[in-house]
Design a protein around this nucleic acid. Structure first.
Length: 511
RNA sequence: GCCCCCAUCGUCUAGGGGACCAGGACGUGGCCCUUUCAAGGCCAAGACGGGAGUUCGAAUCUCCCUGGGGGCACCA
């Protein structure tokens, strides 16, 4: 029997088992732009794993690609993680014993280990030009082969000297993959994955600009930072056996590894990406980058819950659960290996759930800037009154402009006649409703919802109309909207003065 | 093209040989509540991709096919 992992789906049924080494895991994003929700999910699962096992969560910045480097994205990453509540124990801003945590500050280390391999004939200098490489790639693929043809792997000293001179000492360092046999990597979730070594490439370890590639930094850093478990996206599976061979070459033990499934576009075509995400059935742009979710008015707790609902399940037929509950229960064995289409409708629902459950004061704080961004002047007292009227009616924060804007609108345009006059009514009956309401409201001692209802509801019977007719008339007259929060609450918030003035205006419209 | 991974309602998922004529959630439709819209309650439609095995018994284990995804850079 092969070695069985406690998380493996295939060979083993044991679920929660304490890892036998101290848990140290890392999220290692590359600062090449705003962070993607897929990356966030990897970060979240890794963090959950660390927190569940009482381990250490490390944030490491993989900034070795000078061409794609975008300095602003580091802050986008740290701020985004913090916003979601994903905190790190070692990394930027907090430091740690295994730093530095920016790979650009560790280049000497990488160079040292690349040379270490070179010295032991486990790696070699490659002088091939990008042009040649491009050509070889095409030729190889046409032949059904993969990657580099290993041209520089066995140069004679004379050839090497010639190339050295020709290129002016420009070379990359490539790893020497075993040419025969096969390599097996044990994925914690999938079990053993075996690759024929002929499929594996002599990957570049050190670029000609002196910077290391991901493959080198990753292995070196994971080793020296004493990473116990690697969690990364599925797209890395094919490099896992190469990394395994590197660990072997260094004589280091490879951390346990798990590849997490990717998120697919709503169209179901390809993995979720900014370029191809497209639009929902409702015509909304599908958010992809974390800050897009934030700007679209999703709450961090809803996003976290949502992310744990795809590719992982709580296990109790429950869809709504807190981070603490997730930490307590988080287990890799509940990760679903199938990649999933991004169910944005479910996020909308979940966000609505969290909004409804939210403390009204906190919601007010979140909603105020939304109103202000939409150009409204927000009075705090009124906002407090409006919150209960909109809380159950919005799914995302910006929805509130549509649902509650009427309470902050400075200008008021009376409704057109055809909107004001309700079904099976005419100008005369509408005027009667308005005038009776006016008399009634004018005489009211208080103007709270309860009093209003007590006073206005009898009008329905009195005038021989249906509730919808009477209240619909008043709704239009006082708000000029066909759809609003409940009428009496709405009137109470608007206030006696405004309500009376608007009803009078409506009467005027009828004349 | 080559290599690898994956496969349950439209979507996210539960399922670990008998507890499954397959459970939950979103969405959809209907009803209730109701002054509109929500929220809430109830109900409904809706899936094991196909084929061979193994077994007394398969959504579950094996193989093949099909489908989907990922990778094949001096990017991560």
């Amino acid at each position: 029997m092969p070695h069985l992992s406690p998380y493996c789906h295939k060979e083993c049924h044991t679920v929660t088992e304490k890892p036998d080494v101290p848990v140290r895991v890392r999220f290692a994003p590359s600062p090449t732009g705003p962070i993607h929700i897929g990356g966030i999910r990897t970060a979240l699962f890794t963090w959950l794993f660390a927190r569940h096992h009482g381990g250490v969560f490390i944030l490491r910045i993989e900034d070795t690609d000078r061409k794609r480097y975008d300095p602003g994205s580091i802050e986008l990453i740290t701020e985004g993680l913090r916003w979601l509540g994903i905190d790190w124990d070692e990394g930027p801003e907090v430091g740690g014993e295994y730093g530095p945590y920016f790979q650009s500050e560790r280049t000497a280390l990488y160079r040292q280990w690349a040379n270490w391999l070179l010295d032991r004939n486990l790696a070699y200098r490659c002088y091939c030009t990008p042009e040649r490489l491009q050509q070889v790639r095409e030729e190889q693929r046409a032949k059904g082969l993969t990657g580099y043809d290993r041209h520089c792997r066995n140069l004679t000293p004379a050839e090497r000297a010639r190339l050295e001179a020709e290129t002016g000492g420009q070379y990359v360092i490539r790893f020497k993959m075993p040419l025969e046999g096969s390599t097996t990597v044990h994925d914690m979730l999938r079990g053993d994955i075996t690759f024929d070594n002929t499929q594996l490439q002599d990957l570049v370890l050190l670029k000609s600009d002196g910077y290391p590639t991901y493959h080198l930094t990753n292995v070196v850093d994971d080793h020296f930072m004493q990473i116990s478990h690697i969690m990364r996206a599925e797209e890395w599976i094919s490099t896992a056996p190469i990394h395994k061979n590197m660990y072997d070459a260094f004589g280091w033990q490879m951390p346990k590894i798990a590849h997490l499934p990717v998120i697919l576009n709503p169209s179901g075509k390809g993995k979720l990406s900014k370029r191809s995400a497209g639009f929902t059935d409702g015509g909304r742009k599908v958010p992809v980058l974390l800050h897009e979710f934030r700007e679209a008015g999703y709450l961090p707790e809803a996003i976290v819950n949502f992310l744990t609902n795809i590719g992982w399940s709580f296990g109790d037929d429950r869809e709504v659960f807190s981070v603490d509950e997730t930490i307590a229960r988080f287990d890799l064995s509940r990760v679903n290996l199938a990649s999933s289409i991004f169910p944005l409708e479910k996020l909308d629902w979940l966000n609505g759930v969290y909004i409804r459950e939210m403390d009204p004061d906190r919601l007010a704080g979140l909603l105020k800037p939304v109103f202000e961004d939409a150009g409204y002047v927000v009075d705090d007292d009124r906002l407090r009154q409006v919150i209960p009227l909109v809380q159950a009616r919005i799914k995302t924060l910006p929805d509130v402009v549509d649902k509650g804007g009427l309470f902050f609108r400075a200008d008021f345009t009376p409704p057109p006649l055809d909107a004001l006059i309700q079904k099976q009514m005419d100008a005369a009956s509408t005027r009667t409703v308005l005038q009776r309401a006016l008399e009634t409201l004018d005489a009211l001692p208080d103007f709270d919802a309860e009093t209003l209802e007590g006073a206005l509801r009898p009008l329905v019977a009195e005038l021989g109309l249906k509730p919808g007719q009477v209240f619909g008339t008043l709704r239009e007259a006082t708000t000029a909207e066909p759809v609003t929060p409940p009428l009496f609450d709405t009137m109470a918030v608007l206030g006696r003065e405004t309500v009376l003035a608007r009803i009078r205006q409506a009467v005027d419209v009828l004349c």
